[in-house]
């Protein structure tokens, strides 16, 4: 596996650095020797196939799992993140893919969940005022903050989840597939939101499967494959094909094979040669066999 670790350029200082982070689940090495840097005002996209270790990495950073090895440096200090609360206290906020909102509570309650003002006599007025401030800063389009989350659309929920993560004034915000369940317009809204976060000087880690989204907002792309770093690119200098090659591990992968197969079939149809046609399906089945071999 090739590892390209870009040195910090110019005066850029990393808020969050991971060095040699590993995590095993029983006999499975979910993450091996992971390196990651995030600077203030930078959007880092983490891409990778299913099972590449993206979610495990998010869980380590958000305090759900403890790493087995490696160091996490936050603002030049070595830290451990034993639980979600300490991640929040450090200034690392996470927006999970399933958003983790309570449907039965309203927007204010969800925004302040676990961080209510005045625990023994809730300050509802202050919380509502603060909620509106926050939502307006994000140009959120939410008609009322006193409605249950259940009545909001997917994009609005995503906005509430992101707004909630901003409440503790975090320095790094992790978005786990923020656009996965969204429509075209809502995706654009969320991408705008990501840019606003960057403008506010936050370090943003964005997990995504969508190359278009990554190229639209990310500054840097970190590729994970089978639990290891498999390349790091500046977005301006990389083509989607190169990213896919890094994600799938080689130039010989399902995507290129598929393209090749289509070419072969097209040629077979043109020439009317059945041998070429069977060769195409052979290579496809062989490819999937070796692929499974490397996975297990």
């Amino acid at each position: 596996m090739s590892q390209v670790i870009t040195e910090p350029q110019g005066v850029r200082t990393n808020i969050l650095s991971l060095r040699g982070v590993s995590k095993n689940f029983g006999a499975v090495a979910a993450l091996t020797d992971i390196h990651l840097d995030v600077a203030a005002g930078e959007v880092v996209a983490i891409v990778g196939d299913n099972g590449a270790g993206k979610s495990t990495l998010v869980k380590i950073l958000s305090g759900v799992h403890l790493p087995d090895a490696g160091t996490i440096t936050f603002e030049d200090k070595d830290v451990t993140i034993p639980d979600p609360t300490s991640a929040l206290d450090l200034g690392i906020a996470t927006v999970f893919q399933d958003l983790a909102l309570c449907d039965n509570l309203n927007v204010i309650d969800n925004l302040f969940l676990g961080r209510e003002l005045r625990p023994h006599r809730l300050d509802e007025v202050a919380m509502e005022t603060r909620s509106w401030e926050l939502l307006r800063q994000l140009s959120a389009k939410i008609p009322s903050v006193r409605v249950p989350i259940a009545s909001l659309s997917g994009g609005q929920r995503q906005t509430v989840a992101i707004a909630r993560s901003l409440l503790g004034n975090p320095k790094v915000i992790i978005l786990d597939e923020p656009t996965a369940a969204l429509g075209v317009a809502q995706t654009a809204e969320v991408l705008n939101l990501v840019e606003r976060l960057r403008e506010r000087g936050l370090g943003v880690i964005m997990i995504s499967h969508n190359m278009a989204d990554v190229q639209a907002v990310a500054d840097r792309v970190v590729v994970l494959r089978l639990g290891r770093n498999n390349g790091e690119f500046n977005v301006g200098e990389v083509t989607p094909e190169e990213m896919i090659a890094a994600i799938t591990g080689a130039t010989d992968n399902a995507v290129t094979r598929r393209t090749a197969n289509i070419d072969l079939r097209a040629r077979a149809e043109l020439s009317g040669d059945p041998a070429l046609n069977s060769a195409a399906s052979d290579s496809a089945s062989q490819g999937s066999a070796t692929n499974e071999g490397t996975r297990s």
């Binding site: 958000s62 759900v64 979600p84 609360t85 929040l88 996470t94 999970f96 399933d98 958003l99 983790a100 909102l101 309570c102 449907d103 039965n104 509570l105 309650d109 969940l113 676990g114 961080r115 209510e116 625990p119 023994h120 006599r121 809730l122």
Partner: peptide, 21 residues
């Protein structure tokens, strides 16, 4: 009270409540 909100949150979505600290 904060405790009351936690009770409703746990009843609504226990995983969300856990992640909210």
């Amino acid at each position: 009270t904060k405790w009351g909100r936690s009770v409703y949150a746990v009843g609504g979505n226990v995983e969300a409540a856990r992640r909210a600290g």
